[in-house]
Amino acid sequence: MLAGMTQIETAPPPVAHAVPAVELRGLTKSFGPVRAVRGIDLTIRPGEIVAFLGPNGAGKTTTIDMALGLSRPDSGTARVYGMEPQDAVRRGLVSAVMQTGGLLKDLTVAETLRLTASLFSDTRPVAEVLSRAGISDVADRRVVKCSGGQQQRLRFAMALLPDPELLVLDEPTTGMDVTGRRDFWSAIRQDAEAGRTVLFATHYLEEADAYADRVVLVSQGQVVADGTASQVKALVSGRTVRATVPEAGEALVARLRALPGVEDVELRGDSVLVAGSDSDAVARYLLTDTAARDLEITSRGLEDAFITLTSEGTQK
């Protein structure tokens, strides 16, 4: 499984005796014919802020569900602080902010928190989590009357109650507007500064880049890259230069390959496609030293990067 993975891991070596916050080994899960998770290994050390980045349907939620003990893997194991996920949940070591649902409409915000708090052995005071989530002003409002952003902050406040070592967020800003998203993340970041371990799933590269120390790229149920945010960003942020070059041939391809930063050259009839990190150099060369015309430069989106990385993964 690891053979096809782009290994750019440079994280510090594990602290002696440290128990990993999360340890996933060979997780697989299928729903009928759909292989949602196809062998995921992942170790998260205490204190890390990890983004689980991938397109919709990559298996992020399925993996998180297994890490939280909400669903059982077909094979493989999930451990949280060395325990069965459910044991870690019962001890308040891990809590989670899920994407949608999970709230009773007819309770008020404060009642929801009091109810949730009553279920744990030890919790932070309700007033404290209200203010940390920034919803003290709507404490007496019924959940049904709260906006999507307020409901999401309520989920966050609920997750803060047991003062968990590990906080898991599954696409927490889905459906929020730009301001709501920024406010939500600033609350999370403030909280993480105190040393909490955070694992969040997202399909926004910007979110992963802005808030995570480490980005784990998943696609089609597998980890395809794992590294720092800037490494993964570099991996997915290359550009493609496309141009029509009459009588383009293997000689041109070879010369293009020799240019700095060029990763891939493809010939399609009269068109040549060059992928790489230095699109300026490629464009300059094509326009000055060849008969190239109709030149286009496009930045490679995250989706393209996923496809590239995934097809590399399956070829090897």
């Binding site: 899920m98 999970g102 709230l103 009773l104």
Partner: peptide, 13 residues
Amino acid sequence: GLGWSRQLRLTPL
């Protein structure tokens, strides 16, 4: 239906 039962599975209940 509201997903509350699922939410409760993220608590000790």
